[in-house]
């Protein structure tokens, strides 16, 4: 799975943000704020990636157990899916 084209991940004043670009503002007005780990996952999802790879990324970068990483990643994917941000 992959994030749709037309969004830009930015760090502004210490806050991670996703800004829609060009015509994407019609379907996604406003902007989305992300935690630091959310930004790591988002960056990963700019290329085609599986949920297993995303969980591995979190495990490599943060000191969390596998169960927590899995729950967090799946929750993150669900949220993005709800907002129709993912190309399956």
């Amino acid at each position: 799975m992959k994030i749709k084209e037309g969004f830009m991940l930015r760090e502004v004043a210490g806050q991670w943000l996703v800004v829609p670009l060009g015509e994407r503002v019609v379907e996604f007005s406003g902007i989305m704020t992300l935690s630091e780990s959310g930004a790591v996952l988002w960056r990963k999802m700019e290329q085609d990636v599986s949920s297993e790879e995303m969980i591995a990324t979190i495990l490599a970068e943060y000191n969390v157990d596998e169960e927590t990483a899995k729950t967090d990643v799946l929750e993150f994917i669900d949220k993005l899916r709800e907002k129709s941000l993912i190309e399956e």
Partner: peptide, 22 residues
């Protein structure tokens, strides 16, 4: 979470002013 222009503006503006970031 999606935020409105004004909510986000105030939140980010405060942070940016403190850090002196454009």
């Amino acid at each position: 979470m999606a935020k409105t222009w004004s909510e986000l503006y105030s939140q980010l503006a405060m942070g940016a002013k403190e850090k002196k970031e454009f």
